[in-house]
């Protein structure tokens, strides 16, 4: 669906995006990840036809950005970073303007606007001026704007930046909902967000792609080892350590802090090539200790992200 080949962008001598190539299939939710200034926004701006690439190819469906920028712009709904909408317009007027400029006819546009109002829950603010809206509401209007023409591709630049946790969850749900049918490309520097929403991650650093894989594969790659958390009551540390050292596959045992008195919280670092949960449990069952908690920590992408985007 989207084919990018050796794409570069220079600002004067500064190279913002350096020879990147990737392909995106229909229906994927792709996260573009990287530290600040890595070239995420520049890449998206080239994809949406706002910036001209210095060199390289962008093909979307059968169109190339050089020859048919207009057709490509029709296929794409784009929400720029921090949604710089016309702040002197009313929300309704703004959406109507976008519908008109995208060539929706009168009747269709009314229906479509109502759909989007429901989807992004804008009912209450239709007659408020965009400049008065809070950041989160503004972002939602921006999402409605991007989806106006029911575009096949949705490009979102940091869709959740500056939002509170509730709003982040709301926007994430909306994106997932859309992602069922559409191709979505979103950029972010928040790892947990990328993890939660994207099927596939492209990590860029200093204008180069340093990793491009499914979220699951990247996670696994990140975790050669994993952590088991166990909490006990009425168990002395040394005894527990002794008992657990019998179990094969534990690399390290560390005591973690806990708020509750008389609680012993241990972090067991394990090699990921074998699952020792069963063995640990049967070891514990033989004793008198009260088992309070027992869980495997969800793997995070932080390790691999740091590894790939920091200088050694």
């Amino acid at each position: 669906m989207i084919h990018v080949e050796n794409l570069s962008k220079y600002y004067g001598d500064f190279c913002a995006v350096d020879q990147i190539s990737f392909d995106i299939e229909k229906g994927e939710i792709v996260g573009l990840l990287g530290p600040n200034g890595a070239g995420k926004t520049t890449t998206l701006r080239m994809l949406t036809g706002y910036f001209k690439p210095t060199s390289g190819l962008i093909h979307i469906k059968d169109y190339s950005i050089e020859d048919s920028a207009l057709q490509i712009k029709r296929l794409i709904g784009y929400l720029p970073e921090s949604a710089p909408l016309y702040h002197n317009m009313l929300v309704y007027d703004y959406l109507q303007f976008i519908a008109d400029i995208r060539g929706l006819d009168k009747e269709k546009s009314r229906g479509r606007i109502m759909e989007l109002v429901d989807l992004c829950s804008l009912n209450q603010i239709m007659h408020r001026s965009i400049g008065e809206l809070s950041k989160g509401l503004n972002q939602r209007v921006g999402l409605a704007h991007a989806m106006m023409d029911d575009p096949e591709i949705l490009v979102l630049d940091e869709p959740t930046s500056g939002l509170d946790p509730n709003q982040i969850v709301e926007i994430r749900d909306i994106i997932k909902e859309i992602g069922k049918e559409k191709t979505v490309i979103l950029s972010t520097h928040i790892l947990s967000e990328a993890e939660a929403t994207c099927d596939r991650l492209v990590i860029i650093n200093k204008g180069k792609i340093v990793a491009d894989d499914t979220t699951r594969a990247l996670k696994q790659r990140a975790n050669e080892e994993y952590t088991l958390h166990v909490s006990f009551k009425g168990a002395p540390l040394t005894e527990v350590e002794d008992a657990l050292s019998q179990v094969n596959g534990i690399k390290r045992i560390k005591q973690a802090e806990t708020d509750e008195k008389q609680m012993l919280h241990l972090k067991l670092t394990c090699f990921s090539d074998h699952d020792i949960r069963g063995e640990v449990y049967s070891t514990i069952r033989k004793t008198e200790w009260e088992l309070m908690e027992f869980y495997r920590e969800t793997e995070s992408l932080e390790n691999i992200f740091r590894e790939l985007t920091t200088e050694v």
Partner: peptide
């Protein structure tokens, strides 16, 4: 100044 230029240019207009 407000950045809406980016929005305008990524709409299907020349």
């Amino acid at each position: 100044n407000i950045g809406s230029y980016e929005i305008l240019l990524t709409l299907p207009v020349t």
